[in-house]
């Protein structure tokens, strides 16, 4: 069963946690608050959906290190950084590492709501992509070794005749492999097949 979408608030200041969670609650978002990065990491799992509002300046583990840890654990939550004294360098680093926003405190409540909404949309898209990659990867995993060989040459634009010559099997056998490939992957044409290959490659990269 898919998990529900949450906005996770990680900030060591109780007033900041309480006020943001009240604002998001009023705007009909479900929130969970954590007073430290460690506390959040303890309950984290890779099937979480939603976004994290993450304080940069926290004692022990700061926001940037939490971000790195989430990436390492393959947890795809959209991250909005909140900083009390953010420097341009720090914001550049976090954005490069995949954060979708870097806001400087104080931020207007309505701006925060807008950014949360964007982050959640972003997360949905990201999860869809991840899902598509997983499916593609799964589909390709059902192909035999010979079918994969034929698929690679097909995607590169070789005709069945050429493939038959290249790997030393009959034209007819190639045609049969091609039929199986399209069947197993559900691709309607060559373009779809090559997209599935790319997605599957991404899935490997993520892992």
């Amino acid at each position: 069963m898919r998990k529900e979408t949450y906005v996770y608030i990680v900030d060591d200041d109780p007033a900041v946690r309480e006020s943001i969670s009240m604002l998001l609650g009023v705007a009909n978002y479900k929130t969970v608050s954590f007073s430290s990065a460690k506390g959040f990491l303890e309950v984290c799992s890779d099937d979480m959906r939603g976004c994290v509002i993450l304080d940069v300046d926290m004692p022990e583990m700061n926001g940037q290190r939490l971000q790195q840890e989430l990436l390492r654990r393959d947890i795809h939550l959209a991250i909005i950084f909140l900083s009390g004294k953010g420097s341009i360098q720090m914001s550049a680093n976090t954005i490069r590492a995949g954060a979708i926003d870097f806001l400087t405190k104080p931020v207007h409540g309505s701006v925060l709501l807008e950014r949360v909404q964007e982050a959640l949309q972003h997360n949905v898209q990201l999860l869809m992509q991840v899902e598509a990659c997983k499916i593609a990867s799964h589909k390709l995993s059902t192909l035999t070794q010979r079918e994969r060989e034929v698929m690679a040459l097909t995607v590169e634009g070789h005709s069945s005749k050429e493939i038959a010559q290249l790997i030393g099997i009959s034209y007819r056998t190639v045609e049969i492999h091609r039929g199986h490939i399209m069947e197993k992957t559900g691709a309607k044409n060559l373009i779809e097949l090559s997209q599935i290959r790319i997605s599957a490659a991404k899935d490997h990269l993520i892992k």
Binding site: E18, G84, P106
Partner: peptide
């Protein structure tokens, strides 16, 4: 000063928007 002030200020901004 920024650190000391920005915490209560963001809380204030969030409460008033709520």
């Amino acid at each position: 000063i920024a650190h000391e002030l920005n915490q209560p200020l963001i809380a204030l901004a969030s409460y008033s928007q709520a």
